[in-house]
Design a protein around this nucleic acid. Sequence first.
DNA 1: ATAACATACAACCAAATGGTTGTAGATCAA
DNA 2: TTGATCTACAACCATTTGGTTGTATGTTAT
Lengths: 109, 109
Amino acid sequence: MSDEEVDRLFQALSDSTRRDILQRSITDEQSVSALARHYDMSFAAIQKHVAVLERAALVTKEKRGREQIVRGHEATIRTAQGVLELFEDLWRERASQIARILATEKGKP
Amino acid sequence: MSDEEVDRLFQALSDSTRRDILQRSITDEQSVSALARHYDMSFAAIQKHVAVLERAALVTKEKRGREQIVRGHEATIRTAQGVLELFEDLWRERASQIARILATEKGKP
DNA sequence: ATAACATACAACCAAATGGTTGTAGATCAA
DNA sequence: TTGATCTACAACCATTTGGTTGTATGTTAT
């Protein structure tokens, strides 16, 4: 995954309205206007938020008649988790490296 | 954790320079200027990036003599993972709910 | 056929972001 | 003491972001 994709991913997650939309579109897929009814915001604003989520591949849109159905895309959340796990791995590596150093120190006179 | 804190957290992670700084400050703690040397950017720019990471609690700064030592803050990465896991949980719930519906459907004549 | 609905998209605006340069205050080394 | 280094912070600028309204187009229901 490219840096730009990861950028878009976390940027999309950095807004609570979008996180809420994502949540809703995971639990039950909804049209954009159905989503919009939940928020005190214009339809266009929600449309933009959905577009941001879509650019980040966190949701997909599928045209059904006159409406556009939004559903959460599970794989991308997993990708985000993968990125975070890389950071955690660094800590583990560092911890074990410190342990190794301490072990050799102990062996000294 | 408040919405605003989560906002700041993901927003801080949405820039590749900052992710790189975070990585570096996990593996070995460094001063701000030591970090800055790795990037083709002004010191002030890096200083701002570190400030964003600090506001998100992804790193902490500790004054040591004339320099400011930056180190990664493990707990916050865990928090971010926690947020993502909530989304995954929704999928699991939804999947099991679907399974339950299918099971009752099967029982019908 | 017409009215209501769902979407797309452009234009606009204020505020935030990501960068710059410049200045000033601490701290360390010679 | 003086000079080099590290940091803090302000001012500035271009771009992006998150919202608005307005208009146009396609789809459904009456």
